[in-house]
């Protein structure tokens, strides 16, 4: 589902070029789950952003399915994010002006894959059926992240990319959220690439890949 070859990326920071990724390669099959771990600044989030088409590669290839993400223009990358990939962020990044229900349905409706029953089931599974009319600011962090997971899975993406999805949550809540996410991902048959600092959480996934200073360790 995801094939990355010799991926390189650098940023200019304070007038200096910082090489963040120095030739990373990895493969992720359909329905497989992979934890990407590493120290801060090792390039985990950058790799995930490149895979989602949120940023542009300097060198190397990123294939999502048969699509070479590096060859896409902005509209193509937007199309990829809308239809093929689902991204879950550490900050939840829900849309504050929409209700929980509208947030869950939003991505699916954008992608033209809205399925009311599936959305209802998702709401039920994340335990927020009673909260559907509320706004994100009225929910706890754990509840918001569950909404973010439901929003992503409502669109039934082939590839789920999660960037430290439990970084803002306590250990117990984090474990519950990841367990729920894995269950739901498994139900949809999507592949999952999750960036995390936590070895415990990483152990819950099929495989684990460690990045160190922009390279696979």
């Amino acid at each position: 589902m995801l094939k990355i070859r010799d991926l390189q990326k650098s940023y200019v920071s304070a007038g200096q070029t910082v090489q963040v990724l120095k030739g990373v390669s990895l493969d992720l099959a359909g329905a497989e789950t992979l934890a990407l771990t590493g120290e801060s600044g090792s390039g985990k989030s950058t790799l995930l952003h490149l895979a989602a088409g949120l940023d542009v590669v300097d060198a190397g290839d990123v294939f999502v399915g048969e699509t070479n993400v590096g060859k896409l223009n902005e509209a193509g990358r937007a199309h990829l994010r809308r239809d093929v990939v689902g991204v879950i962020f550490q900050q939840f990044n829900l849309i504050p002006s929409l209700t929980v229900e509208a947030n869950i349905a939003f991505h699916a409706r954008l992608a033209g894959k809205y399925d009311a029953d599936w959305c209802k089931r998702l709401a039920d599974r994340i335990g927020l059926t009673e909260q559907l009319g509320k706004y994100p600011e009225q929910l706890s962090g754990g509840q918001q992240q569950r909404v973010a997971i439901a929003r992503t899975l409502a669109a039934k993406p082939a590839l789920v990319l999660a960037d430290e999805p439990t970084g803002n949550l306590d250990e117990e809540t984090a474990a519950q959220v990841i367990a729920l996410m894995l269950e739901l991902v498994s139900e949809t048959g999507a592949a999952l690439l999750m960036v995390t600092h936590s070895s415990a959480l990483a152990a819950m996934l099929d495989r684990r890949l460690h990045l160190r200073a922009g390279q696979v360790a």
């Binding site: 509209a75 937007a78 994010r81 991204v87 849309i95 992608a111």
Partner: peptide
């Protein structure tokens, strides 16, 4: 911060 999630979900900046 309000528009970036929309962009991430597939709306172009244009």
């Amino acid at each position: 911060p309000q528009l970036a999630p929309l962009w991430a979900l597939g709306l172009t900046r244009g």
